[in-house]
Nucleic acid binder design. Structure first.
Lengths: 175, 175
DNA sequence: CGATACGTAGCCTTGATGGCTACGGGCAAT
DNA sequence: ATTGCCCGTAGCCATCAAGGCTACGTATCG
């Protein structure tokens, strides 16, 4: 490699992830990323097509991290959902970005797989996909509202979460 | 009223709503709004503090419209959720914006009220709030993923929706 | 010497501010 | 009652700052 590279795509994405969590989506500017990796802003375009592509890459990295966390559980419904919520707590902006950017199918599939397996056990192979969508939609919606500062009608949010989890398990079981 | 006004806050918010749906959040620029209401961009700042405030106002208008739609149903769980989904189909960008902006409590409360009532009937007054959060989270998550182009693992999305609705009703009933 | 990574300069768009002008109603003096 | 001034409001023009992005030059290594 001629001219020793001062940065790399990986470093850029990692910096983007950190900046995203620190300053939100708006704070993630090409300038800020360039400064953090020790380079001028235009140089980033040698590694990333444009800002949208950078956001997509950061989003994909978030999905990958989520998948890894899910794979680190025992595969039970409760553990999976709690791991999902834990991820959102640690990387709230990454969670939000993930939802607004369509991730590539393969990364998405890796994250979806353990959920599908758990749902197949609970609801049967036939209904596994529908059941997974039920659980995923509930968890995603709950966490999203929690992060957005919803749930302002009082009550204990953790209690609502456990209530939902219990009812979800019941909903998936045999009629 | 001195100096006949060429526009008003209401007209600005309405224009913002239309532009949002046409061009997404990024397309909603002060310039575009100003052009549509027949004014120069700086003049908007006499009516709205800044772009963030405009987005918040448009978001609040979306919540209000959703509340009106929910109030127009018969109050059953199915009707409420279908009305929610219909709103999201008609105003996808408004739906997204609504989720990312924390709406003022009163507007939120108006939209939440019919859901709370339906859930009180199904799950009892005790669990009404938790039940409403369960239903709202599921519906919000489902619709959000649907709009974001999730659900790419095949299968019939409408079928998954009806499956979820049926299971949700079962989950809320007595054990 | 050729390829590659980075930098400098600059363009365009967009958000935002400041200062100016035009309008029109209220108030007081006549 | 009429007249004339004051002042608040709304809009415009000029302008700035910041950010995304491109074109092109330059340095460095194999």
């Amino acid at each position: 490699m001629p001219s020793p590279e001062k940065t790399s795509r990986g470093a850029i994405v990692a910096a983007g992830r950190d900046i995203l969590e620190a300053g939100g989506r708006e704070g993630l500017t090409m300038q800020s990323v360039a400064t953090r990796v020790g380079v001028r802003a235009p140089s980033l375009y040698k590694h990333v097509r444009n800002r949208a592509a950078l956001l997509a890459a950061v989003s994909e990295a978030a999905v990958a991290e989520l998948a890894a966390r899910l794979e680190g559980t025992d595969g039970s419904l409760e553990e999976l959902v709690r791991a999902y919520r834990g991820f959102a707590r640690d990387r709230p902006e990454g969670f939000r970005l993930m939802l607004s950017q369509a991730a590539p199918p393969e990364a998405l599939g890796r994250a979806a797989d353990p959920v599908l397996r758990a749902c197949a056990q609970l609801a049967g192979e036939q209904d596994a996909l529908d059941a997974a969508r039920l659980v995923t939609a509930w968890a995603t919606g709950f966490i999203g509202m929690e992060l957005a500062g919803g749930f302002r009608l009082g009550g204990d949010v953790d209690r609502s979460f456990e209530y939902g989890l219990a009812r979800m398990r019941r909903a998936l079981g045999p009629a």
